[in-house]
């Protein structure tokens, strides 16, 4: 269970999150929507521990452990995964090598044995196939020269292999055509089927047609201003933020 209490985060000297509260219990799927610049990516970075995202007040705990004391890789070892809004390119490092190093590092953190090379190969091939990824792409350098859709698909393959207990997906659906969107939804639903928790950050109701959330939150001006069920997303789509009485500027 992820518990965020009264979270204040400052970035570049400016307070972006201003007392955010959010609780995600095991197996739940939450969606966060909100206008541009509301602080959605900031929330995902603060949860995962990116440098420069300074927590000035409040707390983040995961399964009772204080995440704020942990390095990003330790949080990953605890089961956190971040699907990046803009996945990063790493020239010269094959997807396969990257992911095996990452998985083994997580396993070492958890005191587990490293995965045997053969087992890893089987695992990654199976996950790539489930998500319709050409196995050749596994040999290519991480995200280098990938199209937008391919990068997002790659995030899903990584998620499937690392098998996190909580996935934070930052606009994984943005800029995708309908086929790519369906692939992403498949990835999320497979994770969901194993009773993992998911936090989807999205601009569009469209993803929520494929992955139906348990809760929808609206983040504006650094706080969660409204929470509801899946209908809230539909209502938002229909009326817009203004129609729901949400202003984009800071409260």
């Amino acid at each position: 269970m992820l518990e965020i209490k009264n979270l204040h985060v400052t970035v570049g000297g400016q307070e972006i999150l201003k007392g955010l509260n959010l609780t995600i219990s095991d197996g739940e799927v939450h969606a966060i929507m909100g206008p541009n610049g509301a602080g959605k990516s900031t929330l995902s970075y603060a949860v995962c521990g990116k440098d420069g995202y300074e927590i000035t007040q409040g707390s983040i705990t995961y399964n009772g452990k204080n995440l704020m004391d942990m390095d990003p890789n330790e949080r990953a070892g605890e089961g956190l995964f971040l699907g990046f809004q803009y996945p990063v390119e790493i020239p010269g490092v094959s997807n396969m090598n990257f992911l095996r190093s990452a998985l083994n590092s997580q396993r070492r953190y958890r005191g587990e044995d490293e995965i045997a090379a053969v087992d890893f190969l089987k695992l990654i091939r199976a996950k790539a196939a489930e998500l319709d990824m050409d196995p050749e792409m596994l040999k290519r350098p991480v995200n280098v020269g990938f199209s937008g859709g391919e990068k997002k698909r790659n995030e899903m393959v990584q998620m499937a292999v690392l098998d996190p207990s909580l996935a934070v997906l930052d606009e994984t659906d943005s800029g995708l055509d309908i086929d790519a969107l369906k692939i992403v939804a498949t990835g999320i639903n497979r994770l969901r089927a194993t009773d993992k928790s998911i936090l989807m950050i999205t601009h569009y109701q469209r993803l929520l047609d494929y992955v139906v959330p348990d809760y929808v939150h609206i983040l504006a001006a650094g706080q969660i201003v409204k929470t509801g069920g899946k209908e809230l997303a539909l209502e938002l789509e229909e009326k817009g933020y203004m129609g729901l009485g949400i202003t984009e500027s800071a409260a």
Partner: peptide, 18 residues
């Protein structure tokens, strides 16, 4: 790049090495 590697579970020095 560093944060991306770390978020996937790699320690800082391993990330640099990779």
């Amino acid at each position: 790049q560093l944060f991306y590697c770390q978020q996937r579970g790699l320690e800082t020095e391993d990330s640099v090495a990779l």
